[in-house]
């Protein structure tokens, strides 16, 4: 009788060991995060690519001045008239572009144009269109920002910056 009991115990231990091994294997497999290679690449490059492309484009409604030229004018004397001022035209164009791209892709972002740390244009936040996508670069986790300086010599430098928040 004792021998039988010992044999059954042995069998039970084997079943227990196999079950525990199963549980560990399942736990390891289920908690493994899926690969996000493309997503990481996309968001890592997005800020830089957006800013690079944005500064180069020309505005047909404003005598084909480039965005970079409008930024320079907005930061200095605001002499360009489209007929709207360069600052107003700048904001319109950038909002139109973001509407068709970052807003459409549900990206959380914060866009600023600053001269000597002062905004020359009201910052554009994704939260203005959708509260859930509001971006605070100082408190939220962000991807690599896209930023470029625009020289307005001898008045200093303007920094165009796009922060993408991870949400």
């Amino acid at each position: 009788m004792k021998r039988s009991q010992a044999e059954i115990m042995g069998l039970a231990i084997i079943v227990l060991l196999i079950s525990v091994g199963f549980i560990f294997y399942v736990a390891f497999t289920v908690t493994k995060t899926p690969s996000r290679v493309a997503e990481v690449y996309k968001y890592d490059q997005m800020g830089e690519n957006m800013v690079n492309a944005l500064l180069e484009i020309t505005v047909p409604d404003c005598e084909d001045y480039s965005i970079e030229q409008l930024i320079s004018d907005c930061a200095m004397q605001e002499r360009i008239r489209c007929p709207a001022s360069s600052c107003d035209e700048l904001r319109d164009v950038i909002e139109t572009i973001f509407e068709g791209t970052l807003n459409h892709w549900y990206v959380s972002y914060y866009f600023t144009i600053k001269k000597d740390d002062n905004d020359i244009m009201t910052p554009i936040n994704a939260g203005d269109y959708n509260e859930e996508r509001s971006c605070d670069p100082e408190n939220d986790e962000t991807e690599r920002p896209g930023w470029l300086p625009v020289s307005v010599f001898p008045y200093g430098d303007v920094i165009v910056r796009l922060d993408i928040c991870r949400k």
Binding site: E39, Y41, N52, I57, T58, D64, T101, W105
Partner: peptide, 19 residues
Amino acid sequence: DEMQVPVVLHNPVTDRRAF
């Protein structure tokens, strides 16, 4: 998933650059 890259579309004839 589609990869999207912002680019400048340059027309060298008119020298206009679109987004």
